[in-house]
Design a protein around this nucleic acid. Structure first.
Lengths: 219, 219
DNA sequence: AAACGACCTGAGGGTTAGCTGAACGGTCAC
DNA sequence: GTGACCGTTCAGCTAACCCTCAGGTCGTTT
């Protein structure tokens, strides 16, 4: 369930989550949120801390589901003192990558399912979502936060062609105003750090985008 | 639904889409677009970002359908801020091939996850619309963007004779001023890259056009 | 068979998309 | 404060690409 009073954020999140295969309900204020949650028993609630009627933390108390809070960046730590075990938070403005990663992490922790694989693997490139570690050919590689998010997005969508606009929309914060040049820079960084050996996995499709894929067996 | 204030663009698009079997409604400004969309619930909206009354992004918010934006090339922002998941965009001047490809991609993504085949196949020539990969006789072939668009147009219209004028109209941007000689050049490139083995698939019909087809079984 | 038009293709020039090193400013830990 | 790290922008460069052109080939007509 997605709870936010701004329609644009609500739509952004619910569309993105539906696309990823989640079933999504929405609410625009705390009152509605509590009602819907009672009826539908969602597995997880994405909840804006700043709501017109009730405080988000207050809402969380009345909901029997793990919560992923959305908070303003300048919110000091004590603001989220109401975090229960299993909850988590993301600061606005977020990127879709960020939110989805946190959602999956929360669900993983609260679900009974015993240790589902958090390892992504493409050829000899491996990424652990939990520990945020990355290996290429057995050798561990250190990545900055943005590099990690970008690589994660690539690996989740391995084999699919991604345009720079798509990448910008998912990996960068939704209010990022710059141009797509920054994507080129980060692809360059990633290539140097994790794609400097054969077989090359990150491929450029001129004037189309990028794709991470294992080259076909018979070249 | 097609929304653009320039009649020439509107007609170009709607005629081309109708010919391809789509049912098309049109609107000339944002106000009309919102009204028509409300009444008719289109499956997809092709929407010029620059409209006389409302901003295209504003219109998109009020429409409950995936959107394919038309933007000017010189819009330096490679990031369309309002781009929701499932939306896409094409820069002006576009080619009809481009627009139709994007439309199909958006519909494919938003329709039920019925994994429809995105593979075109003629004899031992195969083309994947998603990954933009092409194989001839199992061997992968690298094509430039224009080569790919041309081959795609051929394959979608396999067995149909295409005049150079038709090809120019569909594969090249609508403002292309050059002559049809360029088509000959690109057919030549394609022959070298994907039609250098028997059976030959691209055939010249002198003073008529070209056709991509499998030769009849018995000579 | 000659003449003509249509087509093929190699070569070349102008253009553009993408790559990357460098620089700048911000943030955070110490 | 100070330094390390990070995110972003920018500009020069390169390689890929698009288009044109011209000389040659091939088919058709006279």
């Amino acid at each position: 369930m997605v709870v936010d009073d701004e329609p644009s954020i609500r739509d952004l999140l619910s569309a993105s989550l539906r696309f990823s295969g989640f079933e999504v309900l929405t609410a625009a204020d705390g009152q509605e949120a509590v009602e819907v949650a009672e009826r539908a028993s969602p597995d997880l609630v994405v909840l804006d801390v700043m709501l017109p009627d009730l405080d988000g933390l207050e809402v969380a108390k009345r909901i029997d589901a793990p919560v992923l809070f959305l908070t303003a960046r300048d919110a000091t730590e004590d603001k989220i003192a109401g975090l229960r075990v299993g909850d988590d938070y993301v600061t606005k403005p977020f990127s879709l990558e960020e939110v989805q990663a946190r959602i999956r992490a929360v669900l993983r922790r609260t679900r009974v399912e015993g240790a589902p694989a958090t390892r992504l693997k493409v050829a000899d490139l491996e990424l652990d979502e939990d520990s945020r570690e990355v290996w290429r050919g057995g050798r561990q590689v250190r990545l900055s936060p943005t590099e990690f998010k970008l690589l994660h997005y690539f690996m989740v969508n391995a084999g699919r062609v991604l345009s720079k606009a798509q990448i910008l929309d998912h990996v960068w914060n939704y209010d990022f105003g710059g141009d797509a040049g920054v994507v080129e820079s980060y692809v360059s960084y990633l290539r140097r750090k994790v794609d400097d050996v054969e077989p090359r996995l990150i491929h450029t499709l001129r004037s189309v985008g990028y794709v991470l894929r294992e080259p076909p067996p018979a070249g």
